[in-house]
Amino acid sequence: MKKILGLLSFILVVCIGGFIYLTSTDESVSDGEKVVINHIMGTTEVVKNSKRVIVFDYGIAEMLNTAGIEIIGLPKEGMPKFLSNYKDEKYINVGGLKEPNLEKIYSIKPDLIIVSGRQEPFYEQLSKIAPTVGLTTTGEDYIKVLQNNIEIISKIFTKGETLKNNLLTIENNLTVIKEKVEKNGLNALVVLSNNGKLSAYGLKSRFSIIYDYLGFKNLESITASTHGSKINFEYILEKNPDYIFVVDRSAVVGGDVSANKVFDNDIVKATKAAKNKKIIFLDAEIWYTAAGGINTTQKMIDEISAALN
Rank of each mutant, 00 (worst) to 15 (best):
G42R: 01
L168H: 13
V268H: 00
K272N: 14
K180C: 10
V46I: 13
V55D: 02
E77M: 14
D242N: 15
N276D: 14
G78R: 04
K164E: 11
S30P: 09
M300R: 04
L198V: 07
N260R: 15
Y142D: 06
L237W: 07
M63P: 06
K76D: 09
N232C: 10
L163S: 03
L186V: 08
I222W: 07
E151I: 05
S225D: 08
N276M: 11
N166S: 15
L64Y: 06
V55M: 11
D264K: 03
N173E: 15
L64N: 05
D264F: 11
G185W: 08
N240F: 01
L219S: 12
F56K: 00
F216W: 02
G117D: 02
K180F: 08
I286H: 02
I143Y: 06
V253P: 05
L5F: 12
L146C: 08
K299L: 10
K104L: 13
H227W: 10
D266E: 15
L135Q: 02
F216V: 05
L97F: 08
K261M: 09
E151Q: 11
E285A: 05
Y21R: 03
T132Q: 03
A200G: 07
I4M: 09
I236Y: 00
V145W: 04
T158I: 05
L203G: 04
I37E: 00
L237P: 04
V115Q: 05
S107E: 11
G202A: 02
I170D: 04
Y106I: 14
A200W: 04
S28A: 14
Y58I: 03
Q125Y: 14
A307N: 02
T226F: 13
V53Y: 09
V13I: 15
G18I: 12
A270R: 09
N101R: 09
S154K: 01
D141C: 12
V14F: 06
L83P: 02
V252H: 04
T44H: 06
N93S: 10
S208F: 06
D283T: 11
E70A: 09
S221R: 12
I156C: 03
N195P: 01
N85M: 13
I69P: 05
K217P: 05
V190N: 01
K128M: 12
V13T: 07
A188D: 01
L186A: 07
L214N: 03
K104W: 12
L97C: 09
P121R: 09
Q147W: 08
I72H: 10
S225R: 13
K76L: 08
V35A: 02
I72Y: 02
N187H: 04
I279G: 03
K144I: 13
F207D: 00
V115I: 15
K230D: 13
K197D: 12
V246W: 00
G215V: 02
L112A: 07
L83F: 01
G293Y: 00
V46Y: 00
K217I: 08
T25M: 13
K230W: 05
V191Y: 03
A307H: 03
V262M: 13
G196V: 06
G68E: 06
L83G: 01
G185K: 07
I244V: 14
L112V: 08
P131N: 10
H227Y: 13
E238A: 10
G73S: 07
I294A: 01
V145S: 07
T289Q: 14
Y142Q: 13
W287L: 11
T25K: 15
